[in-house]
Each structure stands twice: as structure tokens, then as C-alpha cells.
Design a protein around this nucleic acid. Structure first.
Lengths: 120, 120
DNA sequence: TTATAGTACCTTGCAATACATAGTACTTGG
DNA sequence: CCAAGTACTATGTATTGCAAGGTACTATAA
């Protein structure tokens, strides 16, 4: 167990959330998403993102269209669907809920329940 | 893909964090942790928590002592070690970092980069 | 023409974790 | 002696992040 592994675990599920957030108001293709994530200080690997996009597409949360590139191979532009938007709202609720839980545990520093009286 | 699965994924790694937060200022045994988590609106399954505690113990973040129970089998009281406290600080940083990223992506609603000009 | 670099997409295999399920063991009360 | 409650443990499945490697297209240079 190291901090990197745990950070990696913490990202599970959270990356879907971030991709949907990013696509909320504009289409993007994979390499572009990686760049934009980097701007938000979130490093995403290709081997992580491509399967993720395929999953979201297969579940109807994203759609895509091919578009020629001014240079290089054609690009797969992903856009969020109506279902994806609905899903995103639920995700925001889940995220806020988890944060409330963590905040609760974090603030509860002084409250310590007494140990059971040992009756032997 | 459903919301429950994604919530489950989001909990990966986050549960370690919560357990360490909970044990910061007082020992507890597994069933007690489950109860306290429930108070913070975090449902943790036995099959999740016990292996988790064993992992944290094996990594030196937690220690435990056996203690007789006033009723029922003896209890394994877990406590956070010095290493665990250090690790927890790092975890708090990671958590805050992830939240900053999400907040950044969430607030960036109006900024949409223009699509590449299609030169055909 | 051929070779190289850059861009973009995709696949495979591994490691880690949440969870459901089932099982073991101890104590108390009838 | 047996059932119920408490507490701990083990097994198998599904999902996911990531490293590593591969394919294909375009433009530029030799």
C-alpha cells in the first residue's frame, strides 16, 4: 500500500464524473480531453480514457461523431446525451453526499465515544 | 452501468480514508466502526471492512489489541499508528486535491473552446 | 519514393478493491 | 443441550485504473 495506489483507487468512478463534467457544454475528442484534464491538474492515461469513453458510449451517456482533422487522422468527437445529462445530475448528488460524509468525519474530531465498561 | 455501481466505484480508496479519520482519536472494533459509519450516512459491508482493516494493519497504518467483551466473543480493537497518522495527512491532501479538480471542472461551465476550423 | 515524426485511436493483461455470500467461534438464556 | 446474538474470517465475482504495445493516417525531410 502506498499513497499512489490509494490515489489511484480514489480516482475510480471519479474519472467518469470528470469526463461528463467536461463534456457538459462542448464536444471533445480523447486527446483533447486529456489535455483539458491536465489543465485541471488531473493526469489521465490513454489506456484509462479510451475504455472509459467506450463504456460511457455503450451505456448511452455519450455519443460520438467522426470529424476530419486539419492534420493527422480523423477525430472521434464525443458529446453528452440527454441520458448522460440526467446521469450527471445524479453523480453530482452522489459526489456531494460523499463529501458531506467525509466532512462529517473530519469535523467530528473531538467526539470520542467512551469504551465499553469492561465487566470482566 | 448504473448509479449504484458508480457510487460503489467512487467509494474505492475513500473508505480507507474514512476509517483512518474515524480512528484518529479513539480505538474501535469492526462492528463499532460499521455503526459509526452508518451515523455518518456511510453504509459499509462486513465483507468490505474486515479485509480493509487487515490491509491497513499489514501496512502498518493500524494496530490492534484483543479485548474481552461484556457479552459475546472478544473484540479486536484497532488503533491508528504513527505511520497511519502520517499517511492520513497525505490522504487529506489527496482528497482536497481531487476536490479542487472537481470544483474546477464544475465551475468552468461557461468556458467552451471553439472547435478547430475545418480546412477540408 | 522512402523514411521519420507526430497525431489519434484501440487492445491486452495485471493489480487492487467493493461486495455478496457463506462459514467459524464465542457467549448467554431458555 | 440448543438457539440467538455478536464478532471475526474466507471465497468468488465484477469493475476499474494503468502500463505497455499496437494500428493507421498525415506531413515533412532526405
Amino acid at each position: 500500500m502506498n499513497i499512489d495506489n490509494l490515489k489511484s483507487q480514489m480516482r475510480k468512478g471519479m474519472l467518469e464524473f470528470c469526463v461528463l463534467l467536461l463534456l457538459r457544454h462542448g464536444d471533445a475528442y480523447a486527446s483533447e480531453i486529456i489535455t483539458k484534464m491536465k489543465e485541471a491538474h488531473l493526469i489521465v492515461m490513454e489506456g484509462t480514457l479510451y475504455p472509459l469513453l467506450t463504456r460511457l458510449k455503450n451505456d448511452g451517456l455519450l455519443a460520438y461523431r467522426w470529424q476530419e482533422s486539419p492534420a493527422g487522422p480523423p477525430r472521434k468527437y464525443y458529446s453528452i446525451t440527454q441520458l448522460g445529462t440526467q446521469f450527471l445530475e445524479q453523480l453530482q448528488n452522489s459526489w456531494d453526499e460523499i463529501n458531506r460524509t467525509v466532512d462529517h468525519l473530519r469535523s467530528k474530531s473531538a467526539i470520542v465515544t467512551p469504551p465499553d465498561i469492561n465487566l470482566q
